[in-house]
Amino acid sequence: MQSDIKRLSLILLFAPFALWIFLLIALPHIGMVILSLREKVAPRVYEFGFGNYIDFIQEPIYWNTLLRTGSMSILVTFLALLIGFPIAYYIAKIAGNRSKGALFLLCLIPLWVSDLIRAFGWILLLRETGVASSFLLWTGAINEPIEFLYNDVTVVVGLVYTVILFMIVPLVSTLDGMDDAMVEAGYNLGGSGFTVLRRIIIPYAMPGIVSGCIVVFMLTAGSYLTPILLGGKNSSWFTEQIYDQFITRFNWESGAAFGFLLLAFTSLVVWLGLKLTGQTLANTVAKS
C-alpha cells in the first residue's frame, strides 16, 4: 500500500518531465530524422535514402557555412570567456556583499529586453546614419559616414554581447564557492599572481568555465537573429541556410538534414572540447 502510493507520486511527479521530453524533444526529432532521410524522386514521390546528406557534402557552400559558423562560434565563446571571467571574478570575489547583488542584477538587465530589440539597438548605434558614425563625423575623425554593420566583427561583437551573461552566471556561482583562503594559501606558499590564477583559480573554476562555454557555444551556433540582423546577407550563418531550406525553398527534407548536421556538428565540437581539456560532463556541467 505504502509503496503503491510512493510509486504513484513518483509517476505523477515524473509525468510532466517525461511528457515534455517525449512530446517536445524526442517526437519532433524523430520526425525530423525521418524527414531528413526521405529523398524526392518525383513530385510527391519519396524514397528512403541519404540524398539530403550527400547533397550537403557535395556542395562546398553548405559545409563551408557550417565550418564558418562553428569557428566563429568558438571565437565568440573564447571572447565571452576572456571578457566574462574577470567580470565574474570581480562580482564573486572582490565586490562587497551588497554591491555583489547589484552588479549581478546589472548583468541580468539585458535579459529583460528581447533579442530582437537588442539587435535593433546595435543597428541604431552602428548603421551608416547611426550614433557611432554621426559622432565620428561630428568630431571630425572621419569625413564620410561609415557603415559599421554587415561585417564579421559586428556579428562577433553582437553575439558576445548577447551571450556573455550565460558565461558570467555559471562562473560567478562556481567562483563564489571558492574559499578566499585558497587564493591566500596559493600566495602564501610562494605562488605569483599568475601561478595562483593558473594553478588554483582556473582549475577550481573549471566546472563553471566548461558549462559556460558549452552553453555559450550552443547558443551562438544556434542563434539566428543576431547574425542576420547585424551581418546581413554576408553573415552566412548556418541557421540561415536551414531557414532558407525550410521557408524559401520549401525543401523540408534538406532543412531537416541540415538541422541534424548542425546538432551533430556542435555536439562533436563540445565533445572534442571536453576531451581536449580532460573534463567530463558529469564533473563539470552537473556540478556547477
Binding site: 574559499d179 583562503a181 594559501a185 602564501n188 605562488g191 605569483s192 588554483i200 582549475p203
Partner: peptide, 21 residues
C-alpha cells in the same frame, strides 16, 4: 615584502588544501 616572498607559511583555519590537486 609581498606575502609570496615571505618565508612565513600558514595553516589556514579550514586548511585550504587545493581540492583539484
Amino acid at each position: 615584502t609581498p606575502p609570496n616572498k615571505r618565508n612565513v607559511k600558514m595553516v589556514f583555519q579550514h586548511l585550504a588544501l587545493f581540492p583539484m590537486m
